[in-house]
Write a protein that binds this DNA or RNA. Sequence first.
DNA 1: ATAGGGTTAG
Length: 594
Amino acid sequence: MLSSINKNLTRTPTPTRASFLSSLLNSCIARSATGPGKQVHAQLILSGLSRNPFSATKLITLYSASHSTSHARAVFDGIPNRDRNVFVYNAMIRAYAWHGPHEHAISLFQTMVENGLEPDNFTYPFALKACSALSAFNDGRDIHERAFMSRWDSDPFVGAALVDMYSKCGSVDRARDAFDRVTDRDVVVWNSMIAAYAHNGLPTEAFEILRDMSTRGFRPTVATLVTTIATAADAAMLPQGREIHGHGVRMGFISQDKVNTALVDMYAKSGRLGVARTVFESLKERRNVSWNAIITGYAMHGNAEEALNLFDQMRSEQFDPDHITYVGVLAACSRGGLLELGKKHFDSMKGDHSIDPTVQHYTCMVDLLAHAGQLREAYDLINSMPMSPDSAVWCALLNACKIHKDVEMGECVLKKLIELEPDDAGNYVILSNIYAQAGKWDEVSDLRRSIAEKGIKKTIACSWIEVKNQVHSFLVGDAMHAQSKAIYAEMDRLEGLMRDAGYVPDTEPVFHDVENDEKAGLVRAHSERLAIAFGIISTPPGTRLLVNKNLRVCGDCHVAIKFISKIVGREIVIRDINRYHRFKDGECSCGDYW
DNA sequence: ATAGGGTTAG
Protein backbone atom coordinates (compact mmCIF):
# COMPACT_ATOMS: atom_id res chain seq x y z
CA MET A 1 0.00 0.00 0.00
CA LEU A 2 2.78 2.34 0.96
CA SER A 3 4.87 1.82 -2.17
CA SER A 4 2.03 2.28 -4.66
CA ILE A 5 1.09 5.59 -3.14
CA ASN A 6 4.69 6.76 -2.78
CA LYS A 7 5.05 7.16 -6.58
CA ASN A 8 2.36 9.77 -6.87
CA LEU A 9 3.06 11.49 -3.66
CA THR A 10 5.46 14.14 -4.95
CA ARG A 11 2.74 15.39 -7.29
CA THR A 12 0.27 15.76 -4.46
CA PRO A 13 -0.11 19.29 -3.03
CA THR A 14 1.81 19.71 0.22
CA PRO A 15 -1.12 20.17 2.67
CA THR A 16 -2.87 17.07 1.35
CA ARG A 17 0.38 15.13 1.46
CA ALA A 18 1.01 16.24 5.04
CA SER A 19 -2.37 15.16 6.27
CA PHE A 20 -2.13 11.90 4.35
CA LEU A 21 1.28 11.05 5.83
CA SER A 22 0.04 12.10 9.22
CA SER A 23 -2.82 9.63 9.10
CA LEU A 24 -0.42 6.93 7.89
CA LEU A 25 1.78 7.67 10.91
CA ASN A 26 -1.21 7.41 13.21
CA SER A 27 -1.89 3.90 12.05
CA CYS A 28 1.79 3.00 12.40
CA ILE A 29 1.76 4.33 15.98
CA ALA A 30 -1.41 2.42 16.79
CA ARG A 31 0.18 -0.80 15.56
CA SER A 32 3.71 0.00 16.79
CA ALA A 33 4.73 -0.67 13.18
CA THR A 34 8.26 0.68 13.08
CA GLY A 35 9.10 -0.69 9.63
CA PRO A 36 6.31 1.07 7.73
CA GLY A 37 6.80 4.03 10.05
CA LYS A 38 10.37 4.39 8.85
CA GLN A 39 9.11 4.51 5.25
CA VAL A 40 6.69 7.28 6.15
CA HIS A 41 9.57 9.02 7.91
CA ALA A 42 11.58 8.81 4.66
CA GLN A 43 8.65 10.33 2.77
CA LEU A 44 8.39 13.15 5.29
CA ILE A 45 12.09 13.89 4.83
CA LEU A 46 11.64 13.93 1.02
CA SER A 47 8.73 16.27 1.37
CA GLY A 48 10.62 18.50 3.79
CA LEU A 49 8.08 17.83 6.51
CA SER A 50 10.16 15.92 9.03
CA ARG A 51 11.27 19.07 10.79
CA ASN A 52 7.73 20.28 11.12
CA PRO A 53 6.83 20.09 14.84
CA PHE A 54 3.49 18.49 14.09
CA SER A 55 4.89 15.52 12.16
CA ALA A 56 8.01 15.41 14.33
CA THR A 57 5.83 14.89 17.41
CA LYS A 58 4.20 11.92 15.74
CA LEU A 59 7.54 10.50 14.66
CA ILE A 60 8.94 10.82 18.17
CA THR A 61 5.83 9.09 19.49
CA LEU A 62 6.26 6.30 16.95
CA TYR A 63 9.91 5.66 17.77
CA SER A 64 9.19 5.93 21.47
CA ALA A 65 6.47 3.29 21.19
CA SER A 66 9.00 0.94 19.64
CA HIS A 67 11.65 1.71 22.27
CA SER A 68 13.88 3.43 19.70
CA THR A 69 14.72 6.38 21.89
CA SER A 70 17.80 7.24 19.87
CA HIS A 71 15.75 7.49 16.66
CA ALA A 72 13.26 9.66 18.49
CA ARG A 73 16.09 11.89 19.66
CA ALA A 74 17.43 12.19 16.10
CA VAL A 75 14.05 13.49 14.98
CA PHE A 76 13.97 15.91 17.91
CA ASP A 77 17.49 17.15 17.13
CA GLY A 78 16.45 17.73 13.51
CA ILE A 79 13.86 20.30 14.50
CA PRO A 80 15.25 23.85 14.48
CA ASN A 81 15.46 25.20 17.99
CA ARG A 82 12.97 28.02 17.37
CA ASP A 83 10.40 25.50 16.11
CA ARG A 84 10.59 23.24 19.14
CA ASN A 85 7.30 23.76 20.92
CA VAL A 86 5.81 22.20 24.02
CA PHE A 87 4.45 19.25 22.01
CA VAL A 88 7.81 18.08 20.76
CA TYR A 89 9.38 18.53 24.16
CA ASN A 90 6.55 16.60 25.79
CA ALA A 91 6.87 13.74 23.31
CA MET A 92 10.63 13.56 23.78
CA ILE A 93 10.49 13.81 27.58
CA ARG A 94 7.86 11.08 27.54
CA ALA A 95 10.12 8.85 25.43
CA TYR A 96 12.87 9.15 28.05
CA ALA A 97 10.46 8.80 30.95
CA TRP A 98 9.10 5.57 29.52
CA HIS A 99 12.18 3.93 28.13
CA GLY A 100 15.11 5.77 29.67
CA PRO A 101 17.65 7.00 30.23
CA HIS A 102 15.49 8.69 32.84
CA GLU A 103 18.13 11.32 33.59
CA HIS A 104 17.62 12.62 30.06
CA ALA A 105 13.95 13.29 30.73
CA ILE A 106 14.91 15.51 33.65
CA SER A 107 17.65 17.37 31.81
CA LEU A 108 15.39 17.92 28.81
CA PHE A 109 12.76 19.35 31.13
CA GLN A 110 15.40 21.80 32.35
CA THR A 111 16.47 22.64 28.79
CA MET A 112 12.88 23.32 27.88
CA VAL A 113 12.50 25.75 30.77
CA GLU A 114 15.82 27.44 29.92
CA ASN A 115 14.52 27.98 26.41
CA GLY A 116 11.59 29.89 27.82
CA LEU A 117 8.91 27.28 27.24
CA GLU A 118 6.27 26.80 29.90
CA PRO A 119 5.77 23.15 30.95
CA ASP A 120 2.12 22.10 30.94
CA ASN A 121 -0.12 19.46 32.47
CA PHE A 122 1.46 16.89 30.14
CA THR A 123 5.08 17.85 30.72
CA TYR A 124 4.91 17.56 34.51
CA PRO A 125 3.61 13.98 34.69
CA PHE A 126 6.29 12.82 32.20
CA ALA A 127 9.16 14.55 33.97
CA LEU A 128 7.91 13.42 37.37
CA LYS A 129 7.63 9.83 36.18
CA ALA A 130 11.35 9.93 35.40
CA CYS A 131 12.02 11.21 38.94
CA SER A 132 9.91 8.37 40.34
CA ALA A 133 11.90 5.82 38.38
CA LEU A 134 15.15 7.24 39.72
CA SER A 135 13.87 8.03 43.21
CA ALA A 136 15.34 11.45 42.43
CA PHE A 137 13.97 13.43 45.33
CA ASN A 138 15.82 16.70 44.71
CA ASP A 139 14.92 16.88 41.03
CA GLY A 140 11.35 15.94 41.84
CA ARG A 141 11.10 18.65 44.46
CA ASP A 142 12.48 21.26 42.03
CA ILE A 143 9.93 20.24 39.44
CA HIS A 144 7.22 20.34 42.09
CA GLU A 145 8.25 23.87 43.02
CA ARG A 146 7.80 25.00 39.44
CA ALA A 147 4.44 23.26 39.21
CA PHE A 148 3.40 24.98 42.41
CA MET A 149 4.39 28.42 41.11
CA SER A 150 2.45 27.91 37.90
CA ARG A 151 -0.46 26.34 39.83
CA TRP A 152 -0.33 23.16 37.81
CA ASP A 153 0.04 21.27 41.08
CA SER A 154 -3.71 21.29 41.65
CA ASP A 155 -4.31 19.50 38.34
CA PRO A 156 -5.31 15.86 38.94
CA PHE A 157 -2.81 14.48 36.43
CA VAL A 158 0.07 16.53 37.82
CA GLY A 159 -1.09 15.83 41.36
CA ALA A 160 -1.19 12.06 40.85
CA ALA A 161 2.31 12.19 39.39
CA LEU A 162 3.53 14.24 42.36
CA VAL A 163 2.00 11.80 44.84
CA ASP A 164 3.66 8.94 43.03
CA MET A 165 7.02 10.69 42.83
CA TYR A 166 7.13 11.50 46.56
CA SER A 167 5.91 8.02 47.36
CA LYS A 168 8.71 6.41 45.36
CA CYS A 169 11.19 8.74 47.06
CA GLY A 170 9.93 7.47 50.40
CA SER A 171 8.42 10.80 51.39
CA VAL A 172 4.86 9.88 52.21
CA ASP A 173 4.10 13.13 54.07
CA ARG A 174 4.94 15.20 51.03
CA ALA A 175 2.89 12.82 48.94
CA ARG A 176 -0.03 13.54 51.23
CA ASP A 177 0.52 17.30 50.94
CA ALA A 178 0.51 17.03 47.17
CA PHE A 179 -2.65 14.92 47.35
CA ASP A 180 -4.40 17.49 49.56
CA ARG A 181 -3.70 20.29 47.10
CA VAL A 182 -5.46 18.60 44.18
CA THR A 183 -8.80 20.31 43.80
CA ASP A 184 -10.65 17.95 41.48
CA ARG A 185 -9.52 14.57 42.67
CA ASP A 186 -10.39 11.68 40.45
CA VAL A 187 -10.04 7.99 41.12
CA VAL A 188 -6.44 7.84 39.93
CA VAL A 189 -5.37 10.49 42.44
CA TRP A 190 -7.04 8.45 45.18
CA ASN A 191 -5.39 5.27 43.96
CA SER A 192 -1.99 6.96 43.92
CA MET A 193 -2.41 8.01 47.52
CA ILE A 194 -3.50 4.53 48.57
CA ALA A 195 -0.42 3.11 46.86
CA ALA A 196 1.78 5.75 48.51
CA TYR A 197 0.69 4.65 51.97
CA ALA A 198 0.81 0.98 51.03
CA HIS A 199 4.33 1.09 49.63
CA ASN A 200 5.65 3.06 52.55
CA GLY A 201 4.60 0.58 55.18
CA LEU A 202 1.41 2.33 56.30
CA PRO A 203 -1.33 -0.21 55.54
CA THR A 204 -3.79 1.22 58.06
CA GLU A 205 -3.60 4.64 56.43
CA ALA A 206 -4.01 3.02 53.02
CA PHE A 207 -7.26 1.40 54.17
CA GLU A 208 -8.41 4.69 55.68
CA ILE A 209 -7.97 6.44 52.35
CA LEU A 210 -9.88 3.62 50.68
CA ARG A 211 -12.77 4.14 53.08
CA ASP A 212 -12.61 7.91 52.65
CA MET A 213 -12.67 7.50 48.91
CA SER A 214 -15.73 5.24 49.02
CA THR A 215 -17.52 7.58 51.41
CA ARG A 216 -17.08 10.41 48.93
CA GLY A 217 -18.70 8.36 46.23
CA PHE A 218 -15.69 7.27 44.21
CA ARG A 219 -16.11 3.82 42.80
CA PRO A 220 -12.99 1.67 43.24
CA THR A 221 -11.36 0.49 40.04
CA VAL A 222 -9.41 -2.67 39.33
CA ALA A 223 -6.26 -0.75 40.29
CA THR A 224 -7.80 0.21 43.64
CA LEU A 225 -8.64 -3.39 44.44
CA VAL A 226 -5.32 -4.78 43.26
CA THR A 227 -3.40 -2.25 45.37
CA THR A 228 -5.45 -2.74 48.49
CA ILE A 229 -5.49 -6.52 48.23
CA ALA A 230 -1.71 -6.45 47.88
CA THR A 231 -1.55 -4.18 50.92
CA ALA A 232 -3.60 -6.65 52.95
CA ALA A 233 -1.36 -9.45 51.67
CA ASP A 234 1.89 -7.80 52.69
CA ALA A 235 0.58 -6.70 56.06
CA ALA A 236 -1.03 -10.11 56.59
CA MET A 237 -4.31 -8.31 57.26
CA LEU A 238 -6.52 -11.11 56.12
CA PRO A 239 -9.81 -9.73 57.49
CA GLN A 240 -9.33 -6.45 55.61
CA GLY A 241 -8.34 -8.42 52.55
CA ARG A 242 -11.47 -10.54 52.79
CA GLU A 243 -13.57 -7.41 53.17
CA ILE A 244 -12.07 -5.94 50.02
CA HIS A 245 -12.52 -9.28 48.32
CA GLY A 246 -16.21 -9.17 49.27
CA HIS A 247 -16.41 -5.57 48.12
CA GLY A 248 -14.98 -6.62 44.78
CA VAL A 249 -17.51 -9.43 44.44
CA ARG A 250 -20.40 -7.06 45.08
CA MET A 251 -19.06 -4.61 42.55
CA GLY A 252 -18.71 -7.28 39.91
CA PHE A 253 -14.93 -7.17 39.76
CA ILE A 254 -14.47 -10.72 40.76
CA SER A 255 -14.27 -12.10 37.29
CA GLN A 256 -11.27 -9.84 36.79
CA ASP A 257 -8.18 -12.01 36.61
CA LYS A 258 -5.96 -9.18 37.78
CA VAL A 259 -7.93 -8.88 40.99
CA ASN A 260 -7.89 -12.64 41.40
CA THR A 261 -4.14 -12.82 40.89
CA ALA A 262 -3.74 -10.36 43.74
CA LEU A 263 -6.01 -12.65 45.78
CA VAL A 264 -3.82 -15.66 44.99
CA ASP A 265 -0.92 -13.76 46.46
CA MET A 266 -2.92 -12.59 49.47
CA TYR A 267 -4.17 -16.05 50.40
CA ALA A 268 -0.71 -17.54 49.88
CA LYS A 269 0.84 -14.92 52.13
CA SER A 270 -1.77 -15.51 54.80
CA GLY A 271 -0.83 -19.16 54.83
CA ARG A 272 -4.03 -20.25 53.05
CA LEU A 273 -2.31 -22.06 50.23
CA GLY A 274 -5.34 -24.23 49.52
CA VAL A 275 -7.53 -21.18 48.95
CA ALA A 276 -4.78 -19.54 46.90
CA ARG A 277 -4.60 -22.63 44.73
CA THR A 278 -8.38 -22.71 44.22
CA VAL A 279 -8.41 -19.07 43.14
CA PHE A 280 -5.45 -19.74 40.84
CA GLU A 281 -7.21 -22.69 39.21
CA SER A 282 -10.29 -20.51 38.67
CA LEU A 283 -8.38 -17.95 36.60
CA LYS A 284 -9.73 -17.79 33.08
CA GLU A 285 -6.58 -16.36 31.64
CA ARG A 286 -3.30 -17.21 33.29
CA ARG A 287 -0.44 -14.82 32.83
CA ASN A 288 3.12 -14.90 34.07
CA VAL A 289 2.20 -12.89 37.15
CA SER A 290 -0.43 -15.46 38.12
CA TRP A 291 2.05 -18.33 37.77
CA ASN A 292 4.66 -16.37 39.67
CA ALA A 293 2.26 -15.61 42.51
CA ILE A 294 1.34 -19.25 43.07
CA ILE A 295 4.86 -20.60 42.53
CA THR A 296 6.42 -18.13 44.96
CA GLY A 297 3.55 -18.86 47.35
CA TYR A 298 4.52 -22.52 47.55
CA ALA A 299 8.21 -21.60 47.63
CA MET A 300 7.77 -19.24 50.60
CA HIS A 301 6.03 -21.98 52.51
CA GLY A 302 8.80 -24.44 51.79
CA ASN A 303 6.71 -26.66 49.54
CA ALA A 304 9.42 -27.07 46.93
CA GLU A 305 7.78 -30.03 45.27
CA GLU A 306 4.53 -28.25 44.45
CA ALA A 307 6.35 -25.06 43.42
CA LEU A 308 8.46 -27.06 40.97
CA ASN A 309 5.47 -29.06 39.72
CA LEU A 310 3.72 -25.80 38.89
CA PHE A 311 6.85 -24.53 37.19
CA ASP A 312 6.91 -27.61 34.97
CA GLN A 313 3.23 -27.14 34.22
CA MET A 314 3.84 -23.49 33.40
CA ARG A 315 6.47 -24.45 30.85
CA SER A 316 4.41 -27.25 29.37
CA GLU A 317 1.66 -24.69 28.78
CA GLN A 318 4.16 -22.65 26.75
CA PHE A 319 4.64 -19.77 29.18
CA ASP A 320 8.03 -18.12 29.22
CA PRO A 321 9.35 -17.97 32.76
CA ASP A 322 10.78 -14.58 33.68
CA HIS A 323 13.28 -13.42 36.27
CA ILE A 324 10.64 -13.39 39.01
CA THR A 325 9.58 -16.95 38.20
CA TYR A 326 13.19 -17.96 38.70
CA VAL A 327 13.44 -16.18 42.03
CA GLY A 328 10.55 -18.43 43.08
CA VAL A 329 12.02 -21.58 41.54
CA LEU A 330 15.46 -21.04 43.07
CA ALA A 331 13.96 -20.09 46.41
CA ALA A 332 11.96 -23.33 46.29
CA CYS A 333 15.12 -25.34 45.60
CA SER A 334 16.93 -23.53 48.37
CA ARG A 335 14.14 -24.09 50.91
CA GLY A 336 13.91 -27.72 49.85
CA GLY A 337 17.66 -28.27 49.95
CA LEU A 338 17.62 -29.37 46.31
CA LEU A 339 21.16 -28.48 45.38
CA GLU A 340 21.57 -30.23 42.04
CA LEU A 341 18.13 -29.20 40.80
CA GLY A 342 18.82 -25.62 41.82
CA LYS A 343 22.07 -25.59 39.87
CA LYS A 344 20.26 -27.02 36.87
CA HIS A 345 17.59 -24.31 36.95
CA PHE A 346 20.16 -21.59 37.49
CA ASP A 347 22.04 -22.71 34.37
CA SER A 348 18.85 -23.17 32.37
CA MET A 349 17.66 -19.70 33.27
CA LYS A 350 20.57 -18.16 31.42
CA GLY A 351 21.13 -20.86 28.82
CA ASP A 352 17.55 -21.59 27.75
CA HIS A 353 15.74 -18.39 28.62
CA SER A 354 18.46 -15.72 28.26
CA ILE A 355 17.67 -14.28 31.68
CA ASP A 356 20.67 -12.64 33.29
CA PRO A 357 20.75 -13.55 36.96
CA THR A 358 20.11 -10.66 39.31
CA VAL A 359 21.47 -10.31 42.81
CA GLN A 360 18.34 -12.08 44.12
CA HIS A 361 19.08 -15.16 42.01
CA TYR A 362 22.61 -15.19 43.34
CA THR A 363 21.28 -14.89 46.88
CA CYS A 364 19.19 -18.02 46.36
CA MET A 365 22.18 -19.89 44.95
CA VAL A 366 24.45 -18.77 47.79
CA ASP A 367 21.81 -19.88 50.26
CA LEU A 368 21.49 -23.22 48.49
CA LEU A 369 25.22 -23.93 48.32
CA ALA A 370 25.98 -22.70 51.80
CA HIS A 371 23.08 -24.55 53.38
CA ALA A 372 24.41 -27.73 51.80
CA GLY A 373 27.72 -27.07 53.51
CA GLN A 374 29.54 -25.76 50.44
CA LEU A 375 30.55 -22.54 52.14
CA ARG A 376 33.67 -22.07 50.05
CA GLU A 377 31.76 -22.52 46.79
CA ALA A 378 29.16 -20.03 48.01
CA TYR A 379 31.88 -17.55 48.89
CA ASP A 380 33.46 -17.97 45.45
CA LEU A 381 30.09 -17.49 43.77
CA ILE A 382 29.64 -14.17 45.57
CA ASN A 383 33.04 -13.04 44.37
CA SER A 384 32.26 -14.05 40.81
CA MET A 385 29.02 -12.05 40.64
CA PRO A 386 29.02 -9.40 37.92
CA MET A 387 27.35 -6.92 40.29
CA SER A 388 28.49 -5.84 43.72
CA PRO A 389 27.03 -8.10 46.41
CA ASP A 390 24.41 -6.61 48.70
CA SER A 391 23.80 -7.38 52.33
CA ALA A 392 21.22 -10.07 51.59
CA VAL A 393 23.80 -12.21 49.80
CA TRP A 394 26.32 -11.97 52.62
CA CYS A 395 23.58 -12.52 55.15
CA ALA A 396 22.62 -15.80 53.48
CA LEU A 397 26.22 -16.92 53.81
CA LEU A 398 26.52 -15.73 57.41
CA ASN A 399 23.44 -17.68 58.33
CA ALA A 400 24.93 -20.82 56.85
CA CYS A 401 28.14 -20.20 58.78
CA LYS A 402 26.01 -20.46 61.89
CA ILE A 403 24.39 -23.71 60.74
CA HIS A 404 27.75 -25.23 59.88
CA LYS A 405 29.55 -23.64 62.82
CA ASP A 406 32.24 -22.04 60.70
CA VAL A 407 33.75 -19.33 62.88
CA GLU A 408 36.46 -18.23 60.49
CA MET A 409 34.18 -17.72 57.51
CA GLY A 410 31.59 -16.10 59.80
CA GLU A 411 34.10 -13.46 60.92
CA CYS A 412 35.11 -12.79 57.35
CA VAL A 413 31.50 -12.38 56.22
CA LEU A 414 30.62 -10.10 59.11
CA LYS A 415 33.40 -7.73 58.01
CA LYS A 416 31.78 -7.47 54.61
CA LEU A 417 28.39 -6.93 56.19
CA ILE A 418 29.65 -4.19 58.47
CA GLU A 419 30.87 -2.29 55.42
CA LEU A 420 27.42 -2.51 53.88
CA GLU A 421 25.20 -1.96 56.88
CA PRO A 422 27.27 -0.85 59.89
CA ASP A 423 24.24 -0.21 62.07
CA ASP A 424 22.47 -3.52 61.71
CA ALA A 425 22.56 -5.35 65.01
CA GLY A 426 21.20 -8.57 63.53
CA ASN A 427 24.48 -9.38 61.81
CA TYR A 428 26.44 -9.10 65.05
CA VAL A 429 23.95 -11.32 66.76
CA ILE A 430 24.39 -14.09 64.21
CA LEU A 431 28.17 -13.92 64.65
CA SER A 432 27.85 -13.98 68.40
CA ASN A 433 25.71 -17.09 68.03
CA ILE A 434 28.49 -18.64 66.00
CA TYR A 435 31.01 -17.77 68.71
CA ALA A 436 28.74 -19.09 71.42
CA GLN A 437 28.24 -22.40 69.64
CA ALA A 438 32.00 -22.77 69.43
CA GLY A 439 32.35 -21.91 73.12
CA LYS A 440 34.27 -18.73 72.35
CA TRP A 441 32.87 -16.75 75.22
CA ASP A 442 35.56 -14.08 75.18
CA GLU A 443 34.68 -13.26 71.60
CA VAL A 444 31.02 -13.16 72.56
CA SER A 445 31.61 -10.55 75.23
CA ASP A 446 34.01 -8.56 73.02
CA LEU A 447 31.38 -8.43 70.35
CA ARG A 448 28.74 -7.44 72.86
CA ARG A 449 30.95 -4.62 74.08
CA SER A 450 31.65 -3.46 70.56
CA ILE A 451 27.92 -3.27 69.79
CA ALA A 452 27.41 -1.19 72.92
CA GLU A 453 30.34 1.10 72.12
CA LYS A 454 29.14 1.75 68.63
CA GLY A 455 25.75 2.57 70.03
CA ILE A 456 24.02 0.21 67.65
CA LYS A 457 20.35 -0.08 68.37
CA LYS A 458 18.99 -3.56 68.37
CA THR A 459 15.71 -4.20 66.69
CA ILE A 460 13.10 -4.91 69.31
CA ALA A 461 11.41 -8.16 68.51
CA CYS A 462 7.72 -7.92 67.96
CA SER A 463 5.07 -10.46 67.06
CA TRP A 464 1.48 -9.80 66.24
CA ILE A 465 -1.63 -11.81 65.74
CA GLU A 466 -5.04 -10.86 64.52
CA VAL A 467 -8.08 -11.95 66.49
CA LYS A 468 -11.59 -10.82 65.60
CA ASN A 469 -10.38 -8.11 63.24
CA GLN A 470 -8.04 -6.66 65.78
CA VAL A 471 -4.27 -6.75 65.78
CA HIS A 472 -2.61 -7.66 69.08
CA SER A 473 1.13 -7.13 69.24
CA PHE A 474 3.62 -8.38 71.77
CA LEU A 475 7.19 -7.55 72.65
CA VAL A 476 9.54 -9.92 74.44
CA GLY A 477 8.59 -10.36 78.09
CA ASP A 478 5.63 -8.10 77.45
CA ALA A 479 3.16 -7.65 80.29
CA MET A 480 1.27 -4.77 78.73
CA HIS A 481 -1.60 -6.69 77.25
CA ALA A 482 -4.93 -6.39 79.03
CA GLN A 483 -5.09 -10.17 79.32
CA SER A 484 -1.49 -10.53 80.31
CA LYS A 485 -2.25 -12.65 83.38
CA ALA A 486 -4.28 -15.15 81.44
CA ILE A 487 -1.60 -15.27 78.73
CA TYR A 488 1.18 -16.12 81.18
CA ALA A 489 -1.06 -18.65 82.92
CA GLU A 490 -1.63 -20.33 79.57
CA MET A 491 2.11 -20.31 78.91
CA ASP A 492 2.74 -22.03 82.23
CA ARG A 493 0.08 -24.61 81.51
CA LEU A 494 1.57 -25.28 78.05
CA GLU A 495 5.09 -25.50 79.36
CA GLY A 496 4.08 -28.17 81.85
CA LEU A 497 2.45 -30.21 79.12
CA MET A 498 5.43 -29.66 76.84
CA ARG A 499 7.86 -30.92 79.44
CA ASP A 500 5.70 -33.98 79.97
CA ALA A 501 5.91 -34.57 76.26
CA GLY A 502 9.68 -34.41 76.32
CA TYR A 503 10.46 -30.75 75.69
CA VAL A 504 13.76 -29.63 77.12
CA PRO A 505 14.29 -25.86 77.04
CA ASP A 506 17.50 -24.75 75.44
CA THR A 507 19.22 -23.18 78.42
CA GLU A 508 22.57 -22.59 76.76
CA PRO A 509 23.62 -19.06 77.63
CA VAL A 510 23.76 -17.94 74.00
CA PHE A 511 21.99 -15.19 72.21
CA HIS A 512 18.92 -16.98 71.07
CA ASP A 513 17.95 -13.98 69.11
CA VAL A 514 18.39 -10.23 69.14
CA GLU A 515 15.59 -9.84 71.57
CA ASN A 516 16.73 -11.91 74.50
CA ASP A 517 20.34 -10.80 74.44
CA GLU A 518 20.59 -9.76 78.07
CA LYS A 519 17.58 -11.78 79.01
CA ALA A 520 18.47 -15.38 78.29
CA GLY A 521 16.00 -16.37 80.97
CA LEU A 522 13.19 -14.80 79.05
CA VAL A 523 13.24 -17.19 76.10
CA ARG A 524 9.97 -18.59 77.24
CA ALA A 525 8.48 -15.11 76.98
CA HIS A 526 9.59 -14.56 73.40
CA SER A 527 7.09 -12.44 71.58
CA GLU A 528 5.81 -15.20 69.30
CA ARG A 529 5.05 -17.41 72.29
CA LEU A 530 3.01 -14.65 73.88
CA ALA A 531 1.12 -14.16 70.64
CA ILE A 532 0.46 -17.89 70.36
CA ALA A 533 -0.70 -18.20 73.96
CA PHE A 534 -3.02 -15.28 73.43
CA GLY A 535 -4.29 -16.83 70.21
CA ILE A 536 -5.04 -20.10 71.96
CA ILE A 537 -7.06 -18.55 74.78
CA SER A 538 -8.99 -16.17 72.57
CA THR A 539 -10.08 -18.40 69.69
CA PRO A 540 -12.19 -21.58 69.58
CA PRO A 541 -10.29 -24.88 69.80
CA GLY A 542 -8.85 -26.01 66.50
CA THR A 543 -8.66 -22.50 65.03
CA ARG A 544 -5.59 -21.99 62.92
CA LEU A 545 -3.27 -19.26 64.23
CA LEU A 546 -1.28 -16.88 62.08
CA VAL A 547 1.51 -15.01 63.85
CA ASN A 548 3.77 -12.44 62.25
CA LYS A 549 7.19 -11.63 63.53
CA ASN A 550 9.60 -8.86 62.59
CA LEU A 551 12.69 -11.06 63.19
CA ARG A 552 13.54 -14.70 62.77
CA VAL A 553 12.12 -17.37 65.02
CA CYS A 554 14.80 -18.67 67.38
CA GLY A 555 15.76 -22.34 67.56
CA ASP A 556 14.27 -22.91 70.99
CA CYS A 557 10.94 -21.37 70.04
CA HIS A 558 10.91 -23.47 66.89
CA VAL A 559 11.16 -26.62 68.99
CA ALA A 560 8.62 -25.32 71.50
CA ILE A 561 6.03 -24.41 68.88
CA LYS A 562 6.26 -27.87 67.36
CA PHE A 563 5.27 -29.27 70.76
CA ILE A 564 2.53 -26.68 71.19
CA SER A 565 0.98 -27.46 67.80
CA LYS A 566 0.66 -31.10 68.79
CA ILE A 567 -0.58 -30.45 72.31
CA VAL A 568 -3.32 -28.02 71.33
CA GLY A 569 -4.09 -29.74 68.04
CA ARG A 570 -3.82 -26.57 65.97
CA GLU A 571 -2.10 -25.43 62.87
CA ILE A 572 0.21 -22.54 63.75
CA VAL A 573 1.70 -20.43 60.97
CA ILE A 574 4.56 -18.12 61.76
CA ARG A 575 5.57 -15.64 59.17
CA ASP A 576 8.98 -14.37 60.17
CA ILE A 577 11.27 -11.95 58.41
CA ASN A 578 12.62 -14.67 56.11
CA ARG A 579 9.98 -17.27 55.51
CA TYR A 580 6.96 -19.15 56.73
CA HIS A 581 6.87 -21.92 59.27
CA ARG A 582 3.71 -24.02 59.32
CA PHE A 583 3.54 -26.10 62.48
CA LYS A 584 1.18 -29.03 62.60
CA ASP A 585 1.11 -32.23 64.65
CA GLY A 586 4.53 -31.56 66.09
CA GLU A 587 6.20 -30.94 62.73
CA CYS A 588 7.15 -27.81 60.84
CA SER A 589 6.79 -27.32 57.09
CA CYS A 590 10.41 -26.18 56.94
CA GLY A 591 11.53 -29.66 58.00
CA ASP A 592 13.93 -27.88 60.40
CA TYR A 593 15.88 -26.74 57.35
CA TRP A 594 16.14 -22.97 57.70
C1' DA B 1 -0.74 16.17 18.65
C1' DT B 2 0.65 14.09 24.11
C1' DA B 3 -1.23 12.09 30.31
C1' DG B 4 -1.23 10.27 36.07
C1' DG B 5 -2.43 4.97 39.63
C1' DG B 6 -2.23 -1.41 40.16
C1' DT B 7 -0.63 -7.47 41.06
C1' DT B 8 4.29 -11.57 41.35
C1' DA B 9 10.42 -11.17 44.09
C1' DG B 10 13.54 -8.37 47.29
